[in-house]
Design a protein around this nucleic acid. Structure first.
Lengths: 354, 354
DNA sequence: AAATTGTTTGTAATCGATTGCACCAAATTA
DNA sequence: TAATTTGGTGCAATCGATTACAAACAATTT
């Protein structure tokens, strides 16, 4: 019970007058050990409160039983939910999860990767930062022979598995919903096109307009980041034009929130005059006084799936990392008051949850 | 460059025809090594792309250069901000941060502690879960000789350092502010009294009433957890009584949000009829259409301070853990529209930020 | 030139667990 | 009874880095 009284297999072996090798084998259920010895060892191990030293094991085996997760921020509900999914699946397998935040900075990302590789994690899960252009720091993971799994925000690197949602479909559903609500001039808050997810949402938006024979007005597409202020600015820009929108599909919940705040200042009726749909289904969208429609990315599922992909990958022939998998989940459109005119007008309206 | 081509000090020693000991000393700037040898080793190490194996080092030294942080949830802004503070200070010292979520469950907490001790982290930072009564699992950390630092939510265990805010003062300031805004019937949403932080906020509330000669009405104190629904329920309960409150000090931002939503449904004017102040200054409180007053806990500072305490502790005589420190930070009252009647009435009004 | 000091390097043990190989005793077969 | 198989253990190397101690060599003093 005293401090630092670390019990090793040698302590057990001395007490029982057998070799440490035998103790090790007994503890690992090696079949070549007699039942009596095994039981004796197990009993003694319990008595002495033996705990396997993971460092020694790690040094010997090269496996640390810990994995790294790199996300832009941990306090975005989306990312924390993914992390939860990963933890949930991996904890029962004895993995420790090391979480790193890039703060959307490619340099931080590179530093974290270096630290994780140095720690010799057994795998890395990541959602790349917005500022990441060059991917050489990411490729170091592969050069190191460490399994890598992208989730949500990925880069196209051959041999790397990824779990994402169908952002194209998400963008399409959101836009279609607004059109079905009667909108004819749907604006789009477009995220950084450097990231695939925003490109796909944007393309979904374009396709929906096309399918519903709505002419594209490039003036309705505003490039923003996902901050509240950016959304407010974007709305101001749209409002300063002669031809204003009658709906907004924002690729970010935060930007959508900024727009809603601005619209209310301008005393514009939501959703009657302008319908709004965000993306991510952050909890606040539900709790707003005017609850916001959004596209849910099923982050917990994404995390669990990513963890599964990892487990499959390391259970395969150790070094055949070429088992590239690309899971694409279906997004869910959650319709709330910011875009639902059912009380006021219009016939057919789709999904309604949350 | 190829996979798994791990370079060790032996590779360097072979290439230079010197012993591994010399290489090790050269790399560690041991003064007993000649300049030429040192430079040669350093140069060769670079050429071969040598990376120190942290596992071997950890096994030898018993230090893993990683620390564990246990929080109830990572997606509460307060906790993620503390974590950021810890990371910021510790990363330059080469520490990896392993983050665990207890989900307010004492069992999870115990499991995470066991896992962290097994990983042989160099220290543990924790904010205890609401359901934690028995502290025997926490004391295991001390028995293990591992430094432990509480932040925000602590248990009174001798020899354990802690960094908290002055919750009493926070509760006092919030209540005083409401009184100065003209309130005479201040309700209190009281958190789980099992936790010191909620007891202190509660006591601060009581003291402010006393100091301002406002009679205590126990009917105005409602016990809630920190969920939105709980706040809504609490308000409904208060509203069903004959004597309703004219202000609410909630020990949780989430419960305060629930109350505000309910008040708006009832078409009660905020802050004119009922002023509301929350606690934590979660970001949403600022972005609400009716921005909420709250008490800021300066979480980033808290994290940095906790990290500093840790560094001091391990730099002291290794095993004198008795350097117990108790840092108490000052909370900040952030006044926003949910409680600020300055437009409408009343004279003196205090701090106003955010 | 011999003795002394000081600088630089090597040898080998250590941290704790795992595992290929060798070995011995008991059980089986010839 | 001798030869062979089998089950159960021990020996010793290994993972990579650190470090007391010893040894070798150079520089200095007498």
């Amino acid at each position: 019970m005293a401090k630092n009284e670390k019990v090793t297999i040698y302590d057990i072996s001395k007490k029982l007058n057998i070799s440490a090798a035998t103790v090790s084998r007994a503890l690992n259920n090696n079949p070549k050990i007699s039942l009596k010895t095994r039981e004796l060892v197990l009993k003694t191990a319990q008595e002495l409160n033996y705990k396997q030293n993971r460092l020694a094991l790690a040094l010997k085996s090269g496996k640390t039983n810990s994995i790294g997760v790199i996300v832009p921020y941990i306090n975005r509900n989306f990312f924390s939910a993914v992390i939860y999914g990963i933890e949930k699946l991996l904890a029962p397998h004895g993995y420790n999860v090391i979480i790193c935040q890039s703060h959307e900075d490619a340099n931080n990302e590179a530093n974290h990767i270096a630290a994780l590789l140095n720690t010799q994690v057994d795998g890395i899960f990541m959602s790349v930062s917005k500022t990441t252009q060059d991917t050489s720091h990411i490729e170091k993971i592969l050069e190191n022979g460490t399994p890598l799994i992208f989730f949500d925000r990925k880069k196209d690197i051959p041999g790397v598995s990824s779990v994402t949602i169908d952002d194209f479909r998400g963008g399409y559903m959101a836009t279609e919903h607004l059109i079905q609500q009667g909108a004819r001039r749907v604006a789009h808050f477009c995220g950084d096109l450097n990231l695939e997810i925003y490109r796909n949402r944007h393309n979904g938006y374009l396709k929906a307009l096309e399918d519903y024979d709505i002419p594209l007005d490039n003036g309705l597409i505003v490039h923003t980041n996902s901050r509240i202020e950016a959304g407010a600015d974007a709305l101001a820009k749209l409002w300063s034009k002669k031809k204003r929108p009658d709906a907004i599909f924002s690729s970010s919940d935060y930007a959508a929130l900024g727009a809603i705040q601005e619209l209310r200042k301008l005393e514009v009726e939501i959703p009657d005059e302008v319908g709004v749909v965000g993306f991510s289904n952050e909890p606040f969208t539900k709790y707003m006084e005017l609850p916001m429609s959004s596209v849910d990315q099923t982050p917990a599922t994404m995390g669990e799936l990513a963890a599964q992909v990892f487990l499959e990958q390391i259970n395969n022939d150790q070094h055949v990392l070429s088992v590239e998998k690309r899971d694409v989940l279906a997004p869910e459109l959650i319709v709330r008051r910011s875009s639902d005119k059912k009380r006021t007008l219009i016939g057919k309206h789709p999904v309604s949850k949350g």
